[in-house]
Simulated assay, not measured.
Amino acid sequence: MLELGAGTGPVTKALIDAGCPPEQIIVVEQDSELCQTLEQRLAGVRVLQANALALGDIRQRARVQSVSVVLSGLPMRIIAPEAAASCYTAAFGLMPPGGSIIQYTYGFRPPVDAEEMPELDARFVGRELRNVPPMGIWSYRLSHARVHGHATSGEWARSREHADRQRVRQ
């Protein structure tokens, strides 16, 4: 599992408490003090200090071939839509077909607009009211057509990256 924007690690800790082996978790956090806190608080979890939006660099640095799920606490509503799309593209490129991004948010709207990434199926999972502030949880997957017939997660990500590079060149 790859967690982007782990903060102080309450979600990571809850996953470990629920039985997820710490050695199967990689957390990415940009702030060096938070990284130190995570390393002290979550023994066995691999902590990377990096910009979570730069998943390509993280993938190389961490020598990650594949992950089953990406958990994101990144504030996608305030991130430029192109950067959010690029991050999700790279995340789906790390997962096998059918993989999902679990995105939590503190707002009431979806963290990634369907208009920005129409190839995604978004599903509101629920709200964790015990968290302060309450946390909304969303699940993002590639649309059914993308997974069953048109492109796998990795193929879709590569084609999207190619399209992004073409736009930059124009």
Rank of each mutant, 00 (worst) to 15 (best):
P81D: 02
A151H: 01
L53R: 15
G149L: 01
S66I: 03
M76R: 05
A18N: 11
D31M: 06
V70L: 13
A80K: 09
L74G: 08
A14I: 03
I16Y: 01
I78D: 09
Q30A: 13
T152Y: 00
E161T: 09
T89R: 15
Q24W: 03
S159R: 11
C35A: 03
Q36L: 10
V132K: 07
R160C: 03
L53T: 15
V64T: 14
G126K: 05
Q170P: 06
G5R: 06
Q166W: 15
R146D: 11
E119Q: 10
A62T: 00
R46Y: 05
D121V: 05
A84P: 00
Q65Y: 07
A52C: 09
T89N: 01
N131T: 11
G99M: 01
Q166V: 15
H144S: 09
L48N: 04
A114N: 06
Q65N: 15
M117W: 03
A91P: 02
E39G: 08
V64F: 06
A84E: 01
R165H: 12
R127Q: 12
Q49A: 10
R160Y: 01
E161K: 13
R130N: 11
E128G: 08
L129T: 07
V27I: 10
Q24K: 10
I78F: 11
L48H: 07
Q36W: 06
